[in-house]
């Protein structure tokens, strides 16, 4: 299924666990350090690095772009490091997250409550995933280097629905299906 980011509420309703998607449009990178700062800004009522409402966050810090390239290797990092911040960001309007690995019960609950989606992509496939990145612009927290917030324009970025608004969980379901003995 081809989807556009920001992802509309209508499309989010159609995204169920196990659905393969290719994403085109705009996504924002943020890892733990950036999450911490966004939460601080929310607490203090400061200006946010980007308008959170409806947006997609990709848990990723790329390797440096070699000359003539848009970006270096650009695969997902482990999502659970963001779990403690995620419900707050979902409450503030974030609609989709892309990363690797499973989420905490609190995050899964918040995904249901705020009608959002968690998409998993293949860790360690950074060279392949970099091919989907057309444009990159650092928009905030430049001092964080690879962990700064970047605005990416992507085309046909592959991912799979891992947590949906119906409470489904790809990791639990997948494991249950193939567990033997």
């Amino acid at each position: 299924m081809n989807i556009t980011s920001p992802i509309s509420s209508k499309v989010i309703e159609e995204l169920t666990v196990g659905t393969s998607v290719t994403i085109s449009g705009v996504i924002y990178t943020a890892r733990d350090a950036a999450h911490q700062r966004i939460i601080q800004s929310l607490d203090n009522g400061d200006k946010l690095p980007f308008e959170l409402k409806g947006q997609t966050i990709y848990y990723m810090g790329p390797s440096p772009a070699p000359p003539g390239r848009v970006i270096g290797s650009a695969g997902p990092t482990t999502s659970r490091r963001m779990d403690s911040y995620t419900p707050r960001l979902l409450a503030a309007g974030i609609k989709a997250m892309i990363g690797k690995g499973s989420r905490s019960p609190e995050v899964r609950e918040a995904i249901k409550q705020y009608k959002a989606v968690y998409l998993a992509t293949t860790g360690g496939a950074g060279a392949l995933l970099a091919k989907s990145v057309r444009q990159i612009e650092t928009i905030a927290y430049e001092d964080l280097g690879a962990e700064a917030i970047m605005r990416l324009t992507v085309e046909n970025f592959p991912a799979i629905v891992a947590n949906d608004i119906y409470g489904g969980d790809l990791f639990e379901q997948g494991k249950a299906e193939y567990k033997r003995g």
């Binding site: 790329p62 390797s63 293949t122 360690g124 950074g126 060279a127 392949l128």
Partner: peptide
């Protein structure tokens, strides 16, 4: 889905080798 994931991993290794990009960021 497991096969598709392995396929991406194998393809990633080809791209990294040919284009001298890190296998993983």
């Amino acid at each position: 889905l497991g096969r598709e994931t392995l396929n991406q991993i194998i393809e990633n290794a080809r791209i990294a080798r040919e284009e001298r990009l890190p296998l993983c960021q």
